[in-house]
Nucleic acid binder design. Structure first.
Length: 209
DNA sequence: CTTATGATTAGA
DNA sequence: CTAATCATAAGA
């Protein structure tokens, strides 16, 4: 048989740590459109990422890493490709993809996704919420995916949480990416206005315009 | 030990 | 606009 050699199949799980070993500002826009996959004992939850924020190294006054390493943010200071999960406001978890380069403490906050598989599981913690709001906002996204602090430090190249890239869209149909200042970081001086929030324009599943 | 507050959210 | 609600970090 002379079948053509198999080309990379899509969706393709990101298994190379090198992919994460870059500035969060570079990784963030590339995460848009990718799938976040969580294999839980109860089943698989998959969502299309539509909104993220980049938190740069210790110089970024909006980043947790700006106040130095503590037990809470230690994962940010570790190797890229891991999940940084923290608990805020006494009730919400937020999930971040740790980036680099190297051990530079940068990360991308996952802010919104469109649930595409496992909606029933995602709804367990969010009963009565419309599908477009299920994972809209960082706290809601973490709840929908069943992410809590037990997953802090999880290796994204190994599961149970993974990222998957999709076939590039045909030219001209690629979704437009919008940049805005980050949400909820008014305390960060000039860093509060930098356009480090990335989202898919007009996507129904984003947390806000 | 005490105290202040947050990379949020839902609801008035 | 505010309440909810508590782990965390910093200070006494």
């Amino acid at each position: 048989m002379t079948a053509a050699p198999a080309v990379a199949a899509f969706p393709r799980l990101i298994e190379e740590r090198a992919w994460f070993d870059r500035s969060a500002a570079e990784v963030a826009p590339e995460l848009l459109g990718m799938s976040l996959v969580h294999d839980t004992p109860a089943g698989r939850i998959v969502g299309r990422i539509v909104e993220v924020e980049a938190y740069l190294g210790p110089e970024d006054l909006a980043a947790h890493s700006a106040r130095g390493r503590t037990p809470r943010n230690a994962v940010m200071f570790g190797p890229p490709g891991h999940l940084y999960v923290y608990f805020v406001y006494g009730m919400h978890h937020c999930a971040n993809v740790v980036c680099g380069p190297g051990t530079k403490p940068e990360a991308v906050l996952l802010r919104a996704a469109q649930i595409r598989e496992g909606a029933a599981l995602a709804r367990l913690s969010r009963s009565g919420v419309p599908a477009t709001r299920l994972a809209a906002g960082p706290g809601n996204l973490a709840a929908a995916f069943g992410i809590d602090r037990t997953l802090n430090g999880a290796d994204l190249t190994r599961g149970p949480l993974r990222l998957a890239a999709h076939e590039p869209s045909a030219a001209g149909t690629a979704a437009a990416i919008v940049r805005t200042p980050r949400i909820g970081v008014d305390y960060a001086g000039s860093w509060s206005t930098r356009p480090l929030r990335f989202l898919i324009a007009d996507d129904a599943h984003r947390s806000r315009p």
